[in-house]
Computed example of a mutant assay.
Amino acid sequence: MDNVGIVVDDLKAAVAFFAELGMELEGEAELEGSTPDRMLGLDGVRSAIAMMRTPDGHGKLELTTFHAPEAVAAQPAVPPPHTLGLHRVMFAVDDIDDTITRLRPHGAELLGEVARYGNAYRLCNLRGPAGIIVALAEEIG
Rank of each mutant, 00 (worst) to 15 (best):
K60V: 14
K60Y: 14
L61R: 02
L61S: 06
E62Q: 11
T64E: 08
T64S: 10
T65S: 09
F66P: 01
H67T: 11
A68H: 15
A68C: 06
A68Y: 15
A68V: 05
A68P: 11
P69E: 03
P69H: 12
P69M: 09
E70D: 15
E70S: 13
E70C: 00
A71L: 13
A71P: 06
A71Q: 05
A71W: 06
V72T: 09
A73I: 01
A73G: 03
A73R: 01
A74F: 06
A74Y: 00
A74R: 10
Q75Y: 07
Q75W: 04
Q75G: 03
P76R: 06
A77D: 00
A77T: 00
P79K: 01
P81Q: 03
H82T: 08
H82I: 04
H82Q: 02
T83H: 00
T83Q: 05
L84F: 10
G85Q: 09
G85M: 07
G85Y: 07
L86V: 01
L86S: 05
H87S: 12
H87M: 15
H87Q: 14
H87E: 13
V89D: 11
V89W: 11
V89L: 14
M90P: 04
M90Y: 10
F91W: 07
F91S: 05
A92T: 12
A92S: 07
V93L: 10
V93S: 08
V93A: 09
D94S: 07
D94K: 04
D94N: 11
D95T: 12
D95I: 11
D95A: 11
I96W: 01
D97F: 13
D97A: 11
D97S: 09
T99M: 14
T99V: 15
T101Y: 06
T101W: 04
R102S: 13
L103C: 12
R104M: 12
R104V: 15
P105Y: 08
P105C: 04
H106G: 04
H106T: 09
H106D: 05
G107F: 14
G107Q: 12
A108H: 03
A108G: 04
A108L: 11
